[in-house]
Design a protein around this nucleic acid. Sequence first.
DNA 1: GCGAATCGTCGATGCGTATCGACGATGGTC
DNA 2: GACCATCGTCGATACGCATCGACGATTCGC
Lengths: 340, 340
Amino acid sequence: MPTSKDVAEAAGVAQSTVSYVLSGKRPISEKTRKKVEAAIEQLTYQPNAGARALASRKTRVIGLVIPFIPELHMASIMEFVSVIATTARQYDHDILLVTEDEGAAGLRRVVGQQICDGLILMQVEGEDERLPVARTLNVPVVLIGIPRDPSGLVCIDADFEMAGEQCVRDLAAAGHSVISVIDWQPEVVDRHVNYVDRFMGGTDTAARAVGVTVQHLPGGADRETIAASVDKALAQTTGVPAFIAPDGTVQDILRRTLASRGLTPGVDVSVIGSASPTLAELQPIPLSTIDLRPGEVSRRAVKIICQLLSTDSQGPHESLELVPTVITHRASTLCPPRTA
Amino acid sequence: MPTSKDVAEAAGVAQSTVSYVLSGKRPISEKTRKKVEAAIEQLTYQPNAGARALASRKTRVIGLVIPFIPELHMASIMEFVSVIATTARQYDHDILLVTEDEGAAGLRRVVGQQICDGLILMQVEGEDERLPVARTLNVPVVLIGIPRDPSGLVCIDADFEMAGEQCVRDLAAAGHSVISVIDWQPEVVDRHVNYVDRFMGGTDTAARAVGVTVQHLPGGADRETIAASVDKALAQTTGVPAFIAPDGTVQDILRRTLASRGLTPGVDVSVIGSASPTLAELQPIPLSTIDLRPGEVSRRAVKIICQLLSTDSQGPHESLELVPTVITHRASTLCPPRTA
DNA sequence: GCGAATCGTCGATGCGTATCGACGATGGTC
DNA sequence: GACCATCGTCGATACGCATCGACGATTCGC
């Protein structure tokens, strides 16, 4: 492997000159620059990351803490991971994976060994042993998700409250007067995951504002529970029933349950779920969705941390950014107002 | 951040002694070791990764090249990623993400800058511009998947041929004489992805060996195509029909198609798919599966590369390891032979 | 045509660790 | 008790780059 010293010799300049050509931190004459660049090209020189990190105290690596796999949300996690990695490259950074099972010690390790300059924590919920640690680490940390106590932390997440509001307002506008929200799976609800409360709060706010009834019914991965919820909703609704089912598994079961009751989404009943546009289009009846835009959340998370890194302002930061959600009407809801 | 020099001063020894305590590469008296360890503890010293890499020429980081996201296989990709990251930690290594969209240049970059000591390439299929590059990089590379020309490369993958054989043999043993294999999606088949051929080869081999008929029918994400395939299979089968549907999306459509024809898997018809045990159990009728064991493949990939790294034998290596698949009979196949 | 400001380049140094040769202290041998 | 091997520790150096101060060469103003 050639070093910058080799390049310097080949170009007939000092090693420091090579460094300045690369960094642009001092003016270099056109002539010298050409010579150096030619030598770099010819030797296929690439700077050594370790040496660079040692001298500059910057690794240009961001640690990404991925959640322990609950088997079902893996696809959505991968979307975050993929976009984060790609976006980081646009800022000339790389992504180092840290698995959640390393816990708070993992954070201390990668920061303490100076393997990375900052951290992104995915899927932060409620309480978390890593949060107090994150606050005291002297590197930028960005959370995707909002913990119960976000003080002293930089957070970004989809605007779940807006999502809840949008769903209810649009269903109300389509003529529904009773709207049933099928909960996430009980494990999620019981953890009192922040985003569930925010979503539910949004639906209730909108219900009050536009004068419709919103009822929350138990969901889960269990077909009997959901079937019971559906039947209860059907019994209590006088007009055309409307369902909001944020969870993908719940959507599957809801779809089959409605079919077995002889109800067709978009005709006898409205259904809105949360899903990516691609998945929504693949459904037998394309699903009207509230898109939580994981890609956009990921991009912004990377942008935020890279800004923090470039200004490397030491002190603790605190901010909270919510990414607007997008509602798209497809075939599973009654016509007005149909967009997209 | 404390350095090994700080630790040395606190312990009253030389910096090199601290290094030897940590590495164990020279004998250290019990007394000195205690002093040094106490100082490390007290200062919460952690060695600087950059300096370590510079001096030792080892980063203890493995680059993981993840495929560009085709949206549907994201969940299975995440399973690989997660297990690889966790396993790497067991060998005291970290994982750096490299996205496929960086292409061959990405490989040159991370290796040339010496950001990582070796690479794992995921989901390698047929031809790939990165393969010739991988062969010339002077670091260990392990492929998950088998390219058309595996010469000079270290590969590991599930044993798709064995998978095909197992499916056919077990269905034959259960009394089926005609077995229909529903293809993967056409984009996959057209790429002439290696594993498809291997799987199909396995089914044909077993068919010949046990004297049953295996027919291959078009699959895809398209319900009409699959429905047509199913009807064709039903028409051509005299005994109890049997289906093998490796692809998850195909399974979904197959399930509904059979239901609409009034056929119940495990009673009127046998169905074997490829899926994780967890997902298989979640089905309305638990699916008999051929498990391709992505976790095991991942673990072995990490193990292989870590062995190559520890022996750092320079020359190009070549090997091919196939991970045995596991067939598990659940409710979707006829009784004999039912296991698990 | 002289001093001052500017520009472009160089040499030296430091970043924190691993590793090599050296050397004092110990223990054993005859 | 003189000699040698072994053990444990130290000091020095190298790893490859970034960065700082210095300095010769220009350029400009007057």
